[in-house]
């Protein structure tokens, strides 16, 4: 095996990986931080939009409040539909070049994060809405009957239970985002995919270069997925409760 003067596929893979190791690492770093930051804020956006969808408009509220709520709800629905109905690669182009044309200076990485946030938000909104709907209606009524406001009920009773149902989908979304960042190469974000494209182009060895990042993507996703599954199992385990023996006397 001669890795300094590669002649077969394996040698080329090792050669490219070695030659461009810092670029691959940097690309990996970019991929990771866009995915993490984008997913995080996307989750927040998704939860907000999902909760707005759940708010009921009361006939008794004053007219201004009702109009505002109606408008906000419509905006949310339109946003969700648009971002679920268009490819992320197109969204990237439109956001980035749209910003440039509007004379807003934005780095490709920032535009990339913005696109991931908006995209994740749209998908999460639906997931969160489903999660909220899956919580038994009686839980709300139990809280209301104690005088808790709809807002308080949402944050203390419904959302914590919806969250538990939504966690697997959140993990899924994050891993999807990690891979979907690759489309951001079209606006020049130097994440893993663009690095592979560059490295492959220099030597005209595309197949080998993309194999390198395929392995990287796979390892990262595989490891993270296992970790999340482990965490999920741990969270799902309900510990047996301990009887409060100090209150035992005089009770059945």
């Amino acid at each position: 095996m001669n890795f300094t003067d590669p002649s077969n596929i394996l040698e080329w893979i090792v050669y490219l990986a070695n030659e461009y190791k810092f670029m691959f690492l940097e690309g990996l770093w970019t991929t990771l931080y866009i995915a993490v930051i984008g997913t995080f804020f996307g989750f927040i956006l998704g939860y907000l939009v999902g909760m707005v969808q759940d708010i009921k408009i009361n006939k008794q509220d004053n007219i201004v409040k009702r109009i505002v709520m109606r408008v906000v709800k419509i905006v949310c629905v339109v946003y969700v539909e648009i971002f679920r109905g268009t490819p992320m690669i197109v969204q990237g182009m439109i956001v980035y070049y749209g910003m440039l044309q509007a004379d807003i200076k934005i780095s490709p990485a920032l535009a990339g994060i913005l696109v991931v946030v908006l995209n994740t938000g749209a998908y999460m909104a639906e997931t969160v809405r489903g999660g909220i709907n899956s919580v038994d209606k009686g839980q709300k009524e139990g809280a209301w009957s104690l005088g808790m406001s709809p807002m308080l009920t949402m944050f203390r009773v419904v959302l914590p239970q919806a969250f538990k149902n939504v966690v697997p989908e959140m993990v899924n979304t994050f891993l999807t985002n990690l891979k979907m960042t690759s489309v951001l190469n079209v606006i020049g974000v130097s994440e893993l995919f663009l690095v592979a494209k560059t490295a492959g182009g220099t030597y005209y060895k595309y197949f080998e270069a993309y194999l390198v990042i395929a392995v990287i993507y796979f390892v990262i996703c595989f490891v993270l997925n296992r970790l999340f599954l482990l965490l999920e199992k741990k969270l799902a385990k309900k510990k047996a409760y301990t009887l409060a023996v100090e209150y035992m006397e005089g009770t059945a």
Binding site: N58, Q60, D61, D136, G138, Q139, E141, G142, A143, W144, S145, L146, G147, M148, S149, P150, R156, V157, P160, Q161, K164, Y241
Partner: peptide
Amino acid sequence: EEKQREINEYRSRVGMVFQSFNLFENMT
């Protein structure tokens, strides 16, 4: 009255026990 705030305050003084219990599942 049909105002959320008034209804909340009223409900806090009129308790209710349900057929399906409706205990908060996420709490002890």
